[in-house]
């Protein structure tokens, strides 16, 4: 994982191109040096983490293919060091509990400067 010069890699997983764009914009506004990778599904995300292991990951839940919480579980089982924020419109408690069990941060959509800041705070907080 690249840690030099505060460069971090963030993987944004969301089937909505609009949401990916908005997350990317808000993150780069705060951290212009970060490297952003995007995936449009959980399955694609699983391939990407094996290739370019990111430091952080934002993960939508309702997507075609495997759902986001399942993708996050598989990613964290393999790479427990990646910090994952589950970024979802589906705010049912069952999903929030699942996120907490995985050690991921649950952030309720919409994607705004405020909600992206919640994910960033979680990424940068030390465990």
């Amino acid at each position: 994982m690249p840690h030099r010069n505060n460069i971090r890699t963030l993987l944004i997983v969301d089937d909505s191109r609009v949401s990916r764009m908005m997350i990317r914009t808000f993150v780069l506004a705060k951290h212009p040096q970060w490297i952003i990778i995007e995936a449009a599904s959980g399955n694609e995300a699983l391939e990407i983490v094996d290739r370019d292991t990111p430091n952080y990951c934002t993960m939508d839940i309702n997507m075609p293919g495997i759902i986001g919480t399942e993708a996050a579980a598989q990613i964290l089982a393999k790479y427990p060091g990646i910090r994952v924020a589950i970024f979802s419109a589906n705010i049912q408690e069952s999903h929030q509990t699942r996120a907490a069990t995985l050690g991921a941060k649950f952030v309720a959509k919409p994607v705004t400067e405020r909600t992206v800041a919640l994910a960033l705070d979680f990424f940068e907080s030390q465990t």
């Binding site: 909505s16 191109r17 609009v18 419109a89 589906n90 705010i91 049912q92 408690e93 919409p110």
Partner: peptide, 21 residues
Amino acid sequence: QEAMCELGNIILNACLSSMAD
């Protein structure tokens, strides 16, 4: 197209999720 899908997804899920809970 995409923005409205995402907007609907957020609004409809917000409503249904709290009802389900």
